[in-house]
Design a protein around this nucleic acid. Structure first.
Lengths: 192, 192
DNA sequence: CAGAAAGGCTAGCGATGCTAGAATCACGGT
DNA sequence: ACCGTGATTCTAGCATCGCTAGCCTTTCTG
């Protein structure tokens, strides 16, 4: 038994090694630099080892995305804890969200831009994904009008944040007006 | 002169052929199917011919994106012409925008998702891009409060639409609630 | 009509994701 | 103690990608 469990423990550790190496390489040089060869060299194993852990490169990106969602959820939670009122919570969460996207663009892409076959809007979604959405939900819920579905409102607000972030990062929106656009979005959702 | 102009005319025609072939292939089978070899076969020329017209595959996608913006601008203009009031115009434009994105996902990706080096938010941006944004601006302008910059408000509203579209198409938002989310977005911008 | 020049094609380079099959290692039974 | 067995890892290679160098044919010019 002990020998079996040691094997499994080492295997799990190597899997974590792969995911963190992929994340760090992506954050340092972008996802284009994360080739299977480069990643294999980084973990000091050969390429096929990657495929004994993950179905392919996309699966590795998905694992990175899940880890990223945990990070985001933690940051959002911390921001919400510091904020006082309802509107301040919303603003703090929104600011933290867009800041996260700008500080860690590669991670954000894996989470929300790249096509990846993760169950998202279902109960089977990985816990970190639901937690990150839950943080948004907690901030949006208080500003929902009677009769509004808080979940739907959160999704819509999230879409606003996501749109701002992606359009700005691709150069389609000028970056210098970001704060003002964010204020407009919050203003229109929190009721001026 | 005539022979020179004929040459140039034929060259321009072939360039249009490349762009439309790329667009049709992308819309039919997705951008992954648009390889330089496949595209060359489609236009019945060899690969290097593509590179005598465009710097690379990304430049071809950019040309397709510009063409797509012209299409979108036309659709938005038609929708706005039919609508009566201020709020109806906004709703019609929003509905047309998201419908366009769902009907022609590959085209939409080239325009607004794919990383492409087109000047966007500047006066040097290609005319179709400015026209498409102008259509949005015309619909959003009337609902801007005094003191609000209509351009910034349009950008923010656009971001909301873009976020809804991209998150839904990647499976991160459930598609069946799209209409209700869109109604929420419009409601919060047009003042309940 | 010979030479120059322009344009298109064949062939190939380096790199990608992924995989088959050889080789190596640790383990268990006699 | 030793050898066979099974799992694990690596070497080598496939098909395909975007892109380009260099030949070759065709066309224009003096």
């Amino acid at each position: 038994m002990t020998i079996q469990t040691r094997r499994e423990r080492e295997r799990a550790e190597r899997e974590r090694l792969i995911v963190t190496a992929a994340r760090e390489l992506a954050e340092a040089e972008g996802w284009d630099a994360v080739t299977t060869r480069r990643l294999a060299a980084e973990i000091e194993y050969s390429q096929p080892v990657l495929y004994s852990h993950f179905k392919g490169k996309d699966a590795i990106m998905a694992a990175v995305a899940v880890q990223g969602c945990a990070d985001l959820a933690a940051e959002l939670g911390a921001a919400r804890a510091k904020a006082r009122g309802v509107r301040e919570s919303l603003a703090a969460v929104a600011e933290t969200y867009t800041s996260f996207a700008q500080r860690r663009p590669a991670l954000y892409d894996a989470m929300f831009t790249h096509l990846v076959d993760l169950p998202f809007a279902t109960p089977e979604a990985p816990a970190p994904l639901r937690e990150a959405f839950g943080e948004l939900l907690h901030a949006v819920e208080p500003i929902a009008a009677e009769g509004d579905d808080p979940g739907l409102l959160t999704e819509t607000f999230w879409a606003g944040l996501h749109g701002l972030v992606t359009l700005m990062r691709s150069g389609r929106l000028p970056a210098e007006a970001h704060e003002r656009r964010l204020a407009l979005l919050i203003g229109h959702f929190a009721g001026s």
